[in-house]
Design a protein around this nucleic acid. Sequence first.
RNA 1: GGAGCCUUAGCUCAAUUGGUUAGAGCGCCGCCCUGUCACGGCGGAGGUUGCGGGUUCGAGCCCCGUAGGCUCCGCCA
Length: 594
Amino acid sequence: MYRTHSCHQLRPADIGQSVTLAGWVNTNRDQGGVIFVDLRDREGVTQIVFRSEENADATVHAHKLRSEDVIQITGKVAARLPGTENAKLATGAIEIIATDLKVLNKADVPPFPLDDPKVNEDLRLEYRYLDLRTDHMQRNLKLRHRIVKATRDYLDDAGFLEIETPVLSNPTPEGARDFLVPSRLNPGTFYALPQAPQQYKQLLQVAGLEKYFQIARCFRDEDLRADRQPEFTQIDVEASFITDVEIQTLIEGMLKRIFKEARGVDIPTPFPRMTYADAMNRFGSDKPDLRFGLELVDLADIFKESGFKVFRSVADSGGVIKALNAKGAAALLSKEQLKKWEEWVKTEFGAKGLAYIKWSEGGEWESPIVKFFSDAEKKALAERMGFAAGDVLFFGADMKLEAVAEVLGRVRLRCADILGLLAAKKDELNFLWVVDFPLLAFSPEDNHWVAVHHPFTRPKAEDMPALEAGEYAKVRAVAYDVVLNGVELGGGSIRIHEKDLQTKMFEVLGVGPEEQQLKFAHLLRAFSFGAPPHGGIALGLDRLVMLAVGAESIREVIAFPKNNRGCDLMTHSPVEVDFKQLREVYISSTAKKN
RNA sequence: GGAGCCUUAGCUCAAUUGGUUAGAGCGCCGCCCUGUCACGGCGGAGGUUGCGGGUUCGAGCCCCGUAGGCUCCGCCA
């Protein structure tokens, strides 16, 4: 037996006991005649004392201890001398008077200080096993475990079955780029790693399992971000004979339990609901952060007769003109900075420009466009926007709401940032359902309509006539996203369960009968054998944990993440493989070597 | 595919306008220390300033290229 107690366990009640502890040397304070070692394990820290006059032999060896050595010590639990208790440690009232020391494994000097949060991330990732020893990372992984456990318990209580689906499955024609896996037994053919268990979970409904969930690993071969990894984990849920509101209620209860058990907070349910149209119109985003205002305001009617041609032409032809008022931002935004913002929207979103009016305290309206406005327009504008000295207005004008939303939605977030609107609300948890997403969007690059959610999403019953009539832009989906503090946590929908409707959807999406047979025959056939009405949702577990621990990146809540080029800096994955290994799976590389 | 920022000791950073021997804190090594807990004291080692080229009497600093890291756009049904 290596130990009798953990390093977090012993208290004054244990004084006098003989104990054995094992762990890592956290710090070693050698004072010559007496040596203090803080011994660390997963649970905590306990102070060990070596006294030369009592245990000369052990003390001699303790002189040689260094950080991160793995040791085992035996000794007696003792009260600390009066006045030397450490209130910062849970075990700070006691210490172990060591009688025996065994070095289980010496450690080299660590390449970086483990307790320094400023160490560069690439170094932490190269030595991830050391980084994971830190309190910070252990807390994150423990909380992740609590969240997964709460999820399993909750869904089990609700009658859901955890069922695994294949990781080796088929490529999907739409959506993200697939990771491919060559099949050795079937030369020239490929599996794909799943982007999501979508079809399998629907087929489990056809199979009559009724309530399914899975903590599912998903794979998408796209570029990485702070909140995107090529492999990530979803809480995947699907159920039969269920409505959209019932799924939302189920998930609200699940998130309530997760946050109660993980963070000890009670989040209010039900969450507010907002339509996609409202979210875009008022906040310029389909995942609005409602912890602050800065709402977008419609101005098209004011500028119908305007002398400013850009606004007038948009207003006249039924386009969208909106503005937001960054209250108190004038003092924070110099002319040069405003120019930079304009450059930013131009380069990043391809906008033509960013119109603004800055009203400094005790000054005039400063703006490249205001000279074109009539007095009546200025008055109407100031009134509607609540424009006052110290404010900055930002405008967006375009024939399409999405274009205005893209620019002003981001300007809104950036304004909130510089105005410090979130500083006081860091701990607030603002949940929201965004509902009534459009079913379809026209893709100019592909020159056909694509599914906004995915091809299996059910159109709203009242919009079926529009679908039949080919007015695709008007058709809304029974789809919903759950949003937390402006981050999309997950999304789902009620699915199509009728073969004919699914076929119709494929046609609209430009998937012809041949391709349907090739790629979706199994699903269409399954629907012909009595498929129940069903629907579900998937939540991004990594993002959920990230928000629960207050991290800035999902890499902080994944044990062994990839960097932003998809590489594992510890194992150097991905790597080149031997020619023979490629030959076995009938692959030859076209990559150019340099 | 594109944009921005970054790279100086093991780690985190500094180095005035381009100027002489590139510094600090922590860590590391050695010695001392019987109540520390960010222990303390004394001494010491440690640098191809990412790499390659250029400008200059002289480059950590300026220019070009390149590699790596981070963030973002595109992409992510």
